[in-house]
Amino acid sequence: MRRVIALVPVALFLVLAAYFFVVLQPGYDPHALPSAMIDKEAPAFDLPGLRDGKALARDTLRGQPAVINFFASWCVPCRQEHPLLMRLAATGKVAVYGIAYKDKPEDSTRLLDQMGDPYRAIGIDRLGRTGLDFGVYGVPETYVLDAAGHIRKRFVGPLTPADIEKELLPLLRTLGGS
């Protein structure tokens, strides 16, 4: 009995060490925050449009998969992912929508004038309320909605080419985006 009890501490430590080992594996990201909204209907929003007064509302997005990108002119990583969004939109196969999060409309416009506009429509979320409803932590964040308007995936932080190739596009294919 004494011998068994004496083995307990080292056994517990080995469990701990195994945990550290898992943590050390490349590819494990403890900060990956799965959205609480996954597979739920996207929150309702009806935002004034940034360009040509084209408003952006949830219910008009139904019918085909949509990518919603929260961005702001004051956000540095947004500029980093911007060219990727441009390329994605240029394929014409993906419906990318933008929501300008806590940003002055004139600043957003200036950003898009400088770097190009990948969005089919842009909603102005001046106070960040729509962002809050989506459970946004910060910008940029990108959501994928299916044709029924359910959130299927969330990307926190700037999109990378790998995100788009390995996750976003395959997901859109399964969702039947044309």
């Binding site: 925050l33 799965p34 959205s35 609480a36 909204m37 809050l132 409803d133 989506f134 459970g135």
Partner: peptide, 8 residues
């Protein structure tokens, strides 16, 4: 709040 951000 939990419905937006989860148990986290």
């Amino acid at each position: 709040v939990v419905s937006r951000y989860g148990d986290f």
